[in-house]
């Protein structure tokens, strides 16, 4: 336990000082890793904890990004203030999408989420309601401002994004160790037994979809702020696949696993840029081998432990 704490401490320190030793290009790679980490952590609630296969997570990311972009460019509302709006829009959208499909069994649900993702992408390309800018997307999104300080350069974004990652980890760890988090695990393990133990499984399936989507929506806001221009191409099916693969390969239901997965999935291809095409082939091969020999992912979750002193107390009373 203590050893783990040291490792996490060392990694945190390393991440905190990383921008001082890296050029803008690599800092930007770390920024993308951070955004994917937020996305994959949010998807982890749905796929990892509740065991619901969602291959359309990019749709919620897109709704968040477009909500922020439209409200910012049309009404000049500061992009950071729009974080709750992005969360709300994506969460609400998830509720509408998930409600009719949530009762579907694993593989059917998965196909339905792919469909939902595609509908969103195509709606954006076709300039739905005349506000999404069609295939070209939306330009001129304002930079985020914190107390008169404009976040502009990669290393400035770096601290903003990774602070958000840290906040996400903080909240999601608490969520994992709670009634809500456990309920998701129960329904993943055995839906009939969960319902038979008194858990409203439909409620929790919807709940994790809405919460995961809301968080992805905020990632969308951050992405829009970072890019200042967004287009439908950033939210295509491949994005959903990457988020999904990060969760599965990193370790379903494991925050450290998902973080490591984000580094490997987004970082490694950058490191092997010189090998061009071969890198994706080797990467694909690595994925296959991984799934054969380590089905639970690289860093699977460790079982929750509960304070032992309470055990002793219960034994006395029991």
């Amino acid at each position: 336990m203590n050893k783990k704490l040291y490792i996490y401490g060392a990694i945190s320190v390393l991440l905190a000082v990383a921008p001082f030793f890296l050029n803008a290009y690599w800092v930007d790679v770390l920024n993308m890793i951070g955004i994917y980490a937020i996305l994959a952590l949010s998807l982890n609630l749905i796929v990892g904890h509740a065991g619901l296969f969602n291959l359309g997570h990019a749709a919620f990311y897109a709704v968040g990004a477009y909500t922020a972009a439209i409200l910012n460019t049309k009404f000049g509302i500061p992009i950071l203030w729009l974080l709750p709006a992005s969360a709300l829009a994506a969460g609400l959208f998830a509720l509408i999408i998930a409600r009719p499909i949530i009762h579907l069994r694993g593989d059917y649900l998965c196909i339905a989420t792919i469909g939902a993702g595609e509908i969103v992408r195509i709606a954006l390309i076709n300039d739905i309601f005349g506000i999404t800018g069609g295939p070209n997307g939306i330009f001129g999104i304002a930079r985020p401002v914190v107390f008169d300080f404009v976040i502009r350069r990669p290393h400035e974004f770096y601290y903003f994004i990774w602070l958000f990652v840290a906040v996400t980890i903080f909240f999601f760890r608490r969520l994992e160790n709670s009634r809500f988090g456990r309920a998701l695990n129960y329904l993943r393990e055995d839906e009939v037994a969960a319902e038979g133990s008194g858990i409203n499984t439909t409620h929790y399936k919807l709940g994790c979809f809405v919460l995961g989507a809301a968080w992805a929506g905020m990632a969308g806001d951050i992405f829009a702020a970072k890019m200042t221009i967004i287009a439908p191409e950033s939210f295509n099916f491949w994005e959903s696949v990457v988020m999904f693969a990060i969760v599965i390969l990193g370790g379903s239901g494991s925050i450290p696993g998902v973080l490591l997965g984000s580094f490997l999935f987004v970082g490694l291809p950058e490191m092997f840029r010189d090998f061009a095409d071969a890198r994706m082939m080797i990467f694909g091969l690595a994925m296959i081998i991984m799934m054969i020999f380590r089905t639970q992912g690289i860093l699977p979750p460790t079982p929750r432990t509960y304070p032992v002193e309470i055990t002793e107390k219960a034994r006395v009373h029991g």
Binding site: N185, E189, D190, V192, A193, P303
Partner: peptide, 9 residues
């Protein structure tokens, strides 16, 4: 029908 991968508690 237990939650096999979770602890007894």
């Amino acid at each position: 029908r237990l939650f096999q991968n979770l602890t007894a508690l």
